Computed example of a mutant assay.
Amino acid sequence: MMRRPVPVRLLVLLAGVAVLVLAAALSVAFGTRIVAWQDIVSAFTTSADGIAEAAVRQRVPRTVLAMLVGASLGVAGAVLQGLTRNPLADPMILGITPGASLAVVSGIAFFGLSTATGYIWVAIVGAALASAFVYTIGSLGRGGPTPLKLALSGAATTAAFTSLISAILLPRIDVMNVFRFWQVGGVGGASYSRIGQVLPFLVVGALLCLVCVRGLNTLALGDDLARGLGERVMVTRIVAFLGAVTLCGAATAVAGPIAFVGLVVPHVCRLLVGVDHRWLLASAGLLGAILLTVADVVGRIVARPSEIDVGIVTAIIGAPFFIYVVRRQKVRAL
Rank of each mutant, 00 (worst) to 15 (best):
T32D: 08
Q81E: 07
P257V: 10
L280R: 01
L199N: 06
V313K: 02
V104I: 15
G138Q: 05
E53G: 01
V313Q: 05
R142L: 09
L286H: 08
G215L: 03
T246P: 03
G262T: 06
V268E: 10
D90P: 13
A109N: 12
F181T: 14
I120P: 00
D223E: 15
V198H: 01
I51M: 15
M1E: 05
V261G: 04
G256P: 03
S139P: 03
T218W: 02
G205C: 05
R180S: 13
G99R: 02
L170E: 14
L202F: 04
L229V: 10
R304M: 11
R172W: 09
Q183P: 09
V302G: 07
V64A: 10
I301V: 14
M92W: 08
R62D: 04
L291I: 12
A25D: 02
A315Q: 07
G288L: 04
A23Y: 01
R237V: 03
N177I: 08
V302R: 07
V125Y: 01
A24F: 03
V125T: 08
R332I: 06
P200T: 06
S106V: 07
L152Y: 05
R214Q: 09
P266E: 07
E231A: 15
A25G: 07
I124G: 02
L88V: 06
I108F: 08
V19Q: 08
P145T: 06
L210I: 10
A36E: 15
L229N: 10
A303M: 08
D49S: 15
A43I: 11
G189E: 07
P147R: 00
G318F: 09
R33T: 14
Y135R: 00
P91L: 03
G285R: 01
T32Y: 05
Y192K: 11
L26D: 02
L13T: 12
P145H: 08
Y119H: 14
A71P: 04
P91I: 01
L73V: 06
I51L: 15
D296H: 10
A206H: 04
Q38M: 14
R85Q: 12
R194W: 04
A76C: 02
G107C: 11
A48D: 09
Q81S: 11
G311W: 01
L271N: 13
V203A: 12
I258K: 02
Q183S: 14
A66Q: 03
W182L: 13
T146G: 02
D49L: 13
T136E: 06
S72F: 04
V79R: 00
S131Y: 05
S193G: 14
A333I: 06
S101C: 14
L80Q: 00
I238A: 01
